[in-house]
């Protein structure tokens, strides 16, 4: 089921896009929006899923699921494409769920930037969860060719954070 925040987020994204009709359906929840004169005028609230739901899964523990729908309105035909063309042979992944920080504190420069050379023990970022600050090391020697997440973004266990071309 969609959270109120997620619906708000959707409205905002649709509002800012050139889309005039948008609908989304998953697990018995349906949301549709229609813009007239460039403004969102109608929001169908999520329908309650039919009571025949066979899996007794309680709808708890949403783990701050990021609204993946975000990708849809954003999808524009060009741009963002070169991601796959970057030449890399190693990905630095997150060892836990948490918030990605590019620098030791907001006042500091990022640990690394694209083009920087790293070796196995170079700290590349911090991932924080429950106030545990985990300094992530590159674990390989090479050049940072791509940074895949933004500062302050929530990351999942095993999610790639950096791409490295080994040297």
């Amino acid at each position: 089921m969609l959270k109120v925040q997620e619906i708000r987020e959707l409205i905002k994204l649709v509002d800012e896009s050139s889309i005039s009709d948008f609908s989304y359906e998953a697990n018995g929840t349906k949301v549709s929006m229609k813009k007239e004169n460039g403004e969102v005028v109608q929001v169908a609230a999520p329908q309650v899923a039919p009571a025949v739901d066979t899996k007794p899964e309680p709808q708890v523990e949403t783990k701050t699921a990021e609204p993946k729908q975000e990708a849809q309105p954003k999808e524009e035909p060009k741009e963002e494409a070169p991601a796959s063309t970057v030449d890399f042979d190693h990905e630095i992944v997150s060892p836990m769920v948490g918030t990605f920080y590019e620098s030791p504190s907001p006042e500091d420069d990022p640990y690394v930037q694209v083009g920087d050379n790293v070796d196995a023990s170079t700290v590349v970022c911090i991932v924080e969860a429950m106030k545990l600050f985990n300094e992530i090391e590159a674990e390989t020697k090479g050049e940072i060719v791509e940074i895949l997440v933004d500062n302050g973004e929530l990351v999942e266990y095993g999610q790639p954070l950096f791409r490295v071309k080994k040297k």
Partner: peptide, 10 residues
């Protein structure tokens, strides 16, 4: 709304 959430980093 009565929905439960788990917070790890907020």
């Amino acid at each position: 709304k009565g929905q439960e959430h788990l917070l790890y980093s907020a």
